[in-house]
Computed example of a mutant assay.
Amino acid sequence: MSDGFVARSLDEVLFWSRIMKEHSFFLKLGFRCEDTQLIQEANHFYAVFESIEHRANTYSIGTDPYTIRRFNEETFVAVSHIWAFKRKVLGLILACQLPGGTNFPLLVDHVSREANYFRNRLAELNSGKLEPLPDAIIDENVFFLRIMADHAKFISHLLDPSERKLVEQANDFSHDFDQLLFQARDLESMRPQSQTGPLLDQFLDQNKVSVKSLRDFKRTARELIEACRIKSIIHPLLADHVFREAERFLLIIDLFEKSLTGHPVPAPHEVSSFAPNAP
C-alpha cells in the first residue's frame, strides 16, 4: 500500500463521513415528534460519523497505510449500519407506518444509495481493485447524474409553491438530468463498444456543462435561503449539502478529462477530493 492509498482513503472518508452525518440530521428533522426511537437512532449515527470525521482529520498522508486500512474497515461497518437504518426507514414510510412525517421516500432511497456508494468505495480501496478508466467514467456518471436529478426534484418540492420561477427552474433541471441519465445508461448498455476516447470525451463535456449550471443554481439558492430572501422549507445546511455534492461531481469530471487527455492528474492531497472509481 502506498501514499496514494492513504490520501485517497482520507479524502473519501472526510467527504462522505460528513455527508453521512448530515443525512442523520436531515432524517431526524423529517421524523414526527413521537418517533423517539428513530430520532435516537439518527442522533446515534450523527455522533458516530462526527467521530469518524474527527478521527480522519487526525491522520495525514504520512500515516501508516495499515492504520488507514483498519480505519476503513471500521468505517465500512458504520456505513453498513447507517445504510440498514435508512432502508428500514424507507420500509416504514412505504408501509404507511410513519404518516405525517416529512421524509420523502425518494429522499430516503437517495441517501441510502449514497451510503452504499461510500461502502463500496471503502471495500474497493482496501482490496486494491480499481476499475479501468472507461468503466469508471461511465459508472461514476450514471451514479452522480441520478443524484443530481434527485436534488433538482427535492429542491422543487421543498420550495414554496409561490416561488413559481425557482420551481420552474428546478423542474427544468430535473428534466435535463433525467435525460442525461438516460443517455448515460444507453452508453452503459453499449459498452465495451461505446468506450472510445471521442465518445467518452463528449460524454464528459456534455455532463460538465449541465452540472456547472446546476451547481450555480444551487449556489444562488443557498445564498437566497441563508439571506431569507425566498420562501421555502429548505434547511440552509441542506442547501449547502447539495451544493457540495455538485462541486464534487465537477471535480471528478475534471479529473476524468485530464486522465483521458493524458494531462497529469493531481495527487489526492492536492485537491479537496479525488475522483473515485465506480461502485
Rank of each mutant, 00 (worst) to 15 (best):
L10R: 00
Y59T: 02
L214D: 01
H269A: 10
K208G: 04
Q97C: 10
P65S: 03
L214N: 04
Q193W: 14
E12S: 13
H151L: 08
R55M: 15
A184R: 00
M190V: 06
L122Y: 05
P264G: 09
E53H: 13
K86F: 15
Q195H: 09
D160F: 13
I68N: 04
M190C: 14
L200Y: 06
V108I: 13
H44K: 09
Q206N: 13
F71L: 08
V77L: 15
P99G: 12
A184F: 03
L255E: 12
L238T: 01
Q37I: 09
P198N: 10
N116P: 01
E257K: 13
S9T: 10
L255C: 07
E12N: 08
H269C: 11
L199Y: 11
F118R: 06
P192S: 05
M148D: 06
R215F: 12
R215H: 11
L200N: 09
N57Q: 15
F143W: 04
H157K: 12
E22K: 09
R244I: 02
P161F: 10
T102S: 09
R8H: 15
L260R: 13
S213M: 14
F76L: 14
H241Y: 04
Q202N: 14
G197Y: 12
F154T: 03
G91D: 10
M1G: 09
I155N: 00
P134L: 05
K212C: 13
I225A: 07
Y117E: 05
V108L: 03
D160N: 12
D139A: 12
I19D: 03
V13P: 03
N72K: 08
D150Q: 10
L106E: 15
H54A: 15
E53K: 10
S194K: 12
T196G: 07
K28Y: 07
F104C: 02
I61C: 05
M20P: 00
S259K: 05
N103D: 14
F243A: 06
G30I: 01
E223F: 11
S60L: 10
V142A: 03
I252S: 07
M20Y: 00
D186C: 12
F144I: 03
T75K: 05
P276N: 02
E223N: 14
S80A: 15
A227F: 15
L29C: 06
I138E: 04
L145G: 05
I93T: 12
A278Y: 01
E34N: 13
R244D: 01
H241V: 03
R87L: 08
I19F: 04
R32G: 04
D139Y: 10
V142D: 01
A56I: 02
N57R: 14
F31Q: 01
H54N: 14
R219W: 04
R69M: 14
D3R: 12
I39F: 07
V167W: 01
S174P: 00
N103P: 12
L98K: 02
Y59L: 14
F49R: 00
F25L: 12
S213I: 11
L181W: 13
A7T: 10
H110Q: 06
G4A: 09
Q179N: 11
G62H: 14
H235W: 10
L130R: 11
F143M: 05
K28S: 09
G30H: 09
I225G: 03
I252W: 04
K28Q: 13
